[in-house]
Design a protein around this nucleic acid. Structure first.
Length: 350
DNA sequence: GCGACAG
DNA sequence: ATCTTGTCGC
C-alpha cells in the first residue's frame, strides 16, 4: 500500500519545462521569476542548475532565461555568445561585446505572465499540516539500540552525447548498540531520485526512499524505539523537517541531526566540549547546538522529529557521539549508504 | 552592504 | 549531496 504522502510529490522538472515553453520569442525571464512561478524563489538556484543540465533540444526555450541583473548567464547548448545569437535572432537587443558583459534590458523584454498552479506552495501547505501533527513527548530512557538513517547519491551518468540521466539514491538504516556504538544490523534500499534538492524541501527528495527503507526494516522485524535522521526536525522555517515527516509517517519517535544550521539563532561562542545551547526561532526554542568533539568548535544541531522533546533529542545525540562529530548511528548510516552508492556508480559506469 | 538556507 | 590533489597537522 503506497503511502499517502508519496503520490503528492510533483514532477518539478516537468513543471519547469512547461513554464519554459510559455516564454514567447522576443521576450526573456529570469531564474528567480521561474522559481517564483514554481512557488518559491528559494528554488532559483535549482532553476539555474536545470538550465545548464536538462535534456535540451532545438525547440527548448532555455536561452530566454537570464540573470536578475539582465546578464545573459550560461547556456546548455554552447557558450554565452551562442545564447546571445539566438536572442538577437528573436529580436532581443543584446548589449555588450565580452560574454560576461552581455546583457538585455529587462524593463523592455521581461516576461512574467506565467500560467501556473505554484507546486511548491502546495508542498509548503503539506509542511504546515505535518507540523500540526508533531508531538513533542517527554522521554528519558535511552533504549538499548538506536537506529540511524541517511541517504547518499550516485552522480548522474552522462552519456557521450551529453544527455543527463537521473541520479540514484541509496538509503541506509543502521542499528547500533547504545552502550558501545557497535553495529548490530543494517540494510539499504536504492531507487532513482526524482525530486531535486531545494533547501527547506529536502523531505520531498528523501522521504519516499526512507519510507521504502522503513518498510523493509519492518518486514525484517528490526524496528527500533528511536530513529536518528540525517536532517532536521522542527528546526525548520515551518517546523517540518524530514525527521518530523518520517516520525509522523512511520508513527515512530525520531530525532533530527544536521551539520549546518538551517535557520534560527544560536550563540555558539566559546562552547565547551559536549555543551549545548538553545536554537531559537521566533521566540521559541526549536532545538540545540552541541559541540561534539574536543578538537573542533564546529557544532552539530539537534531537534525533535516526532514523539520526543528537545531535552531527550539533545541527550540522545550526546550519548551516541562516542567521540565522533556525528552520532554513531548516523556516522555508520552515512558510511554504508555512501559505499553502496559508490559501487552502484562503478557498475553503471562500465 | 546585508544576508547566506538541511542533504 | 557530489566533484576532487595535494597538503597540513596531530
Amino acid at each position: 500500500m503506497p503511502h499517502p504522502l508519496v503520490p503528492l510529490v510533483p514532477n518539478l522538472a516537468k513543471n519547469l519545462g512547461d513554464l519554459l515553453s510559455q516564454i514567447p520569442a522576443g521576450r526573456v525571464t529570469t531564474y528567480g521569476r521561474l522559481a517564483q512561478a514554481l512557488g518559491d524563489s528559494i528554488a532559483s538556484r535549482w532553476v539555474g542548475h536545470f538550465g545548464l543540465h536538462h535534456s535540451h533540444d532545438g525547440n527548448c526555450h532555455c536561452h530566454r532565461v537570464v540573470r536578475a541583473t539582465g546578464h545573459l548567464g550560461l547556456y546548455v547548448a554552447g557558450d554565452t555568445a551562442a545564447k546571445a545569437r539566438r536572442l538577437s535572432k528573436e529580436g532581443v537587443i543584446v548589449e555588450g561585446t565580452r560574454p560576461e558583459e552581455m546583457r538585455v534590458d529587462l524593463n523592455r523584454y521581461e516576461f512574467d505572465d506565467f500560467q501556473t498552479d505554484y507546486p511548491l506552495k502546495k508542498l509548503r501547505r503539506l509542511q504546515h499540516d505535518l507540523a500540526a501533527k508533531v508531538r513533542l513527548s517527554r522521554r528519558t530512557r535511552i533504549p538499548p539500540q538506536v537506529a540511524g538513517v541517511d541517504v547518499s547519491y550516485t552522480p548522474s551518468a552522462r552519456g557521450s552525447s551529453g544527455e543527463s540521466s537521473t541520479d540514484w539514491a541509496v538509503a541506509a538504516y543502521v542499528l547500533v548498540d547504545s552502550d558501545n556504538g557497535s553495529v548490530v544490523w543494517s540494510t539499504t534500499v536504492s531507487r532513482p531520485a526524482v525530486f531535486p534538492y531545494i533547501t527547506t524541501y529536502l523531505t520531498f527528495r528523501e522521504l519516499p526512499i526512507l519510507l521504502e527503507l522503513m518498510k523493509k526494516v519492518h518486514r525484517a522485524g528490526r524496528d527500533c524505539p528511536v530513529i536518528m535522521v540525517d536532517g532536521t526536525g522542527i528546526l525548520h522555517p515551518r517546523r517540518a523537517g524530514i525527521a518530523s515527516f518520517l516520525g509522523v509517517a512511520a508513527a515512530q519517535p525520531t530525532v533530527g541531526v544536521i551539520k549546518k544550521r538551517l535557520c534560527g539563532r544560536v550563540d555558539i561562542d566559546d562552547m565547551r566540549h559536549l555543551e549545548s545551547r538553545p536554537v531559537m526561532l521566533d521566540e521559541q526554542q526549536v532545538g540545540a547546538a552541541i559541540r561534539p568533539t574536543r578538537g573542533s568548535h564546529r557544532p552539530i544541531f539537534v531537534s525533535p522529529g516526532h514523539r520526543v522533546d528537545i531535552d531527550f533529542a539533545t541527550e540522545l545525540a550526546r550519548r551516541m557521539l562516542f567521540g565522533r562529530r556525528l552520532p554513531q548511528p548516523l556516522y555508520e548510516a552515512d558510511r554504508l549508504s555512501r559505499s553502496v552508492a559508490r559501487n552502484l556508480r562503478s557498475r553503471n559506469t562500465q
